[in-house]
Design a protein around this nucleic acid. Structure first.
Lengths: 216, 216
DNA sequence: ACATGTGAACTGCTTCACAGCG
DNA sequence: CGCTGTGAAGCAGTTCACATGT
């Protein structure tokens, strides 16, 4: 009916949101390839799902397509950006200036997608003060006062597993609202803080399981 | 009934396998803390799930607990290792010697968990031949012959999105059976190749969505 | 008495199938 | 006629509740 992204009336499944992100990624490529219209079938093929799933996912937020035609690429791209909250900038702090933390700090996908890395933190006195990729590494102890001056919504956690929960507690009390965790531990956060975890060990072990049990 | 990990009779959900991995991680900590027995309730609390879920997850593979007592930590740890296929070594190649690839190559969790990094590859002539963390960076063009001499089961893909599918095709024809993908694209693999993807952009966008739509 | 193991109920995501509309 | 949008059906994963065994 409308072609505006309307606010969700019922709870949206996490799997739906992740697929929207995949659709958006492919649409951005379609734009640069000069494609002006796209069908749910095509989106599905490149998103690893089905056309019905694509239509259902989009239908939670409005009617974006034209029957008999498909979806207009620029309009759908814009709508997905709006739905995912990507029309604003998000401030991000990276906690942990080890190998993973510094790799992430340099990840180009942050800046290009509106995620603005405002600071990198560590506890190692030898790292504090050194400059990495345009960011001076700061002392974790100053997180609270720093965030008071320059708030950030999202923290990327790349510290050793045994200090991850302590870091989370500090971040939460400093007002961080979302955490992307790379430490291989299950973290406890208050209900109003969003948490996603990327667990390398878990992914590898899941592959190991699949390889081991492929013989049905 | 038995306390042996029996081979799966029905399809095991991916979510179950990922939880087993989380349980295993916590059990390893319990061992080092000297705890000899553990209840499903305790495992659940630290695994971010419920006691019923823990018992159901384990029940797919056998009966590992003692009624009225709980689970013996060393025995359950061993059983989970067996179920997940972690009692053998897996050979891993890392493709892409950029920031993420090199960070991963140094990731201690690989070696300590039986994932043996046997080679690092790149296409950049300036990187090929240089030594990083004990691994000489080799030319991607030699993957096929290298794997012929020294097979590897798992590939970790850390290359730019636009060359990821080409790298996958090469790896698959070279006999790789599982891929852990860090490139932000949806990859196509044959049905007999296991694929997991870690997509930073997707995780960030999912956090952005949650922050944006927290007001119900 | 206590905690596991499990069939049954439940919840919610996915797939189907077709009405609706360009 | 083609492709979207969607209620209804199907299915898979989770939760419940209790019988079972120590």
């Amino acid at each position: 009916m409308n072609s505006q992204a309307c606010s969700a009336v019922k709870r949206i499944a996490d799997s739906t949101v992740r697929r929207l992100s995949v659709y958006l990624r492919f649409l951005e490529g379609s734009t640069s390839r000069g494609q002006s219209t796209i069908s749910s079938e095509e989106l599905a093929k490149h998103g690893g799902t089905t056309s019905a799933q694509v239509r259902k996912d989009l239908s939670f937020f409005g009617s974006f397509g034209k029957r008999g035609l498909g979806y207009a690429v620029p309009e759908l791209t814009e709508s997905l950006r709006e739905i995912l909250g990507l029309q604003r900038q998000w401030n991000v702090v990276i906690v942990g200036a080890g190998k993973i933390g510094t790799a992430l700090a340099q990840y180009h996908g942050f800046k290009s997608r509106g995620f603005n890395v405002v600071a990198v933190y560590d506890t190692d006195a030898r790292k504090i003060g050194s400059k990495w990729e345009g960011h001076v590494v700061r002392d974790v102890a100053s997180i609270t006062s720093d965030l008071g001056e320059r708030p950030a919504e999202i923290a990327v956690l790349a510290v050793p597993a045994d200090v991850a929960q302590a870091a989370v507690d500090r971040l939460v009390s400093a007002g961080i609202r979302a955490i992307l965790n790379f430490a291989p531990v299950q973290l406890q956060v208050p209900g109003d803080v969003a948490l996603r975890s990327v667990n390398m060990a878990m992914e590898l072990e899941s592959l190991s399981f699949e390889l081991t049990n492929r013989d049905r």
